[in-house]
Simulated scan of single mutants.
Amino acid sequence: MATDEAADWATASCSLPIGEQPLRIAEFDRLFAGSARRSVRVSPTRLDVSLAASAEAAACDLAAREVQCCSFFNFEFTSADSAVVMSIEVPQSRIDVLDELTSRVRTVGGQ
């Protein structure tokens, strides 16, 4: 998915200034491209992404900043062996956003 396409769904769901949204999307893309090991859609409202343990600090920082502009997201982190699982939850009304995020993880993460 091209960044322009991602910006289309992000714009409707995010209070981050429009000019900063592509930069945030690129941050998620870099995180997923460099660290995502696998992803599992646990339920319609939850996605678990297994990341390299070395990415935990960057992922936590990015998640904290994302919640500031998109308060409907809930991120939780769980350590598992040499990985960290980033659980991403949204309310039922925001499943479309999680669908797009799932697609991005699988596309840029090579899954």
Results as ranks from 00 to 15, higher is better:
residue 76 E to D: 15
residue 67 V to L: 01
residue 85 V to I: 11
residue 87 S to A: 00
residue 28 F to Q: 04
residue 89 E to I: 04
residue 27 E to F: 08
residue 97 V to M: 04
residue 7 A to L: 14
residue 93 S to A: 15
residue 79 S to K: 12
residue 10 A to W: 14
residue 82 S to W: 02
residue 106 R to A: 15
residue 100 E to K: 06
residue 84 V to R: 06
residue 54 S to M: 03
residue 31 L to V: 04
residue 61 D to N: 14
residue 92 Q to R: 02
residue 96 D to P: 08
residue 21 Q to L: 08
residue 88 I to N: 09
residue 96 D to W: 02
residue 110 G to F: 05
residue 98 L to R: 10
residue 53 A to D: 08
residue 107 T to Q: 12
residue 94 R to C: 12
residue 37 R to M: 10
residue 17 P to Q: 13
residue 26 A to M: 08
residue 1 M to Q: 04
residue 13 S to G: 09
residue 23 L to G: 07
residue 31 L to K: 05
residue 106 R to F: 02
residue 31 L to I: 04
residue 26 A to P: 04
residue 23 L to H: 11
residue 40 V to Y: 02
residue 24 R to Q: 11
residue 103 S to Y: 05
residue 6 A to P: 00
residue 51 L to G: 00
residue 82 S to L: 07
residue 93 S to T: 11
residue 75 F to V: 07
residue 85 V to C: 06
residue 89 E to A: 15
residue 68 Q to W: 09
residue 20 E to A: 12
residue 105 V to W: 04
residue 11 T to R: 12
residue 19 G to Y: 05
residue 17 P to D: 15
residue 24 R to E: 12
residue 71 S to D: 14
residue 43 S to L: 04
residue 85 V to L: 11
residue 73 F to D: 05
residue 98 L to F: 04
residue 27 E to P: 02
residue 71 S to R: 11
residue 24 R to C: 12
residue 93 S to Q: 13
residue 11 T to V: 07
residue 70 C to E: 12
residue 41 R to F: 03
residue 85 V to W: 01
residue 68 Q to S: 15
residue 21 Q to H: 07
residue 49 V to R: 08
residue 5 E to K: 08
residue 9 W to Q: 06
residue 77 F to K: 13
residue 50 S to E: 15
residue 56 E to V: 08
residue 53 A to R: 06
residue 7 A to N: 14
residue 79 S to V: 10
residue 84 V to K: 05
residue 92 Q to C: 00
residue 62 L to W: 07
residue 92 Q to L: 00
residue 41 R to D: 08
residue 15 S to I: 05
residue 63 A to P: 00
residue 95 I to S: 12
residue 77 F to A: 12
residue 70 C to M: 13
residue 67 V to P: 00
residue 103 S to Q: 12
residue 54 S to W: 03
residue 78 T to S: 15
residue 10 A to E: 06
residue 22 P to T: 03
